[in-house]
Nucleic acid binder design. Sequence first.
DNA 1: ATGGTCGTTATACGA
Length: 255
Amino acid sequence: MKIATWNVNSLRVRLPHLLDWLTAVQPDVVGLQELKCVDEKFPFDELQAMGYYSVANGQKTYNGVAILARHPIEDVSRDIPGFEDEQKRVIAGTVNGVRMINVYVVNGQDLGTDKYAYKLRWLTALTAYVAEEMKKYPKLVVVGDFNIAPTGEDTHDPAIWEGKILCSEPERAALRGLIDLGLKDSFRLFDQPPGSFTWWDYRMAGFRRNLGLRIDHVLASHPLADVCRSCAADLAPRRLERPSDHAPVVAEFEL
DNA sequence: ATGGTCGTTATACGA
């Protein structure tokens, strides 16, 4: 079972890349983020024609998440239950007995801003939600754009990023708190080449110079981590014309 | 220190 996550940064613009990538990679379940697309305009028909069921939680201009799967998506849940939030950042569903919680974590802008405070509050609410879900679903993945690089190794230059947004200690502590519920960072279950990232700023030729961060993750519960066979970023779509600024991450599980 | 580049029912703002 191939489980993937991809911040597409506008589903409308990236739909041709997405359809080509689904054909090439054949993932079984995919979490998408930053759709910037209302549900009324979600391309359900094109995806169905490719053999994918889809469920979405979209909004205009900003945010928006979806799950695609080759099998029916059951027990779909949108947002974080009990957490007041205008922004559409979470969708969950169950496919073949595997629970996927797909998240687009708040970016946070800069330390000390209202958006940063919102990010930390949001992560506290997410952690409580995932804790509840883990009681119900032993086989669970939390995937998405976490907007957090777990360690210096997940940045092109730890000194530059030290204490900055996406790398600050409170953000990293929040991610560790989520993982400490009983999850594994699938990517780090395997030897990886240094300089492995999932996001590169459009500015300053970030991708060409590999000035990236690893901020997109597949976190797997222990029963799934035990059967994880690979996890890697797929840089091919990032090399195309008019790419998303994020690469997809694909993890394979023997199920 | 600054700005740079994308996307958006845009023309300022979020990332």
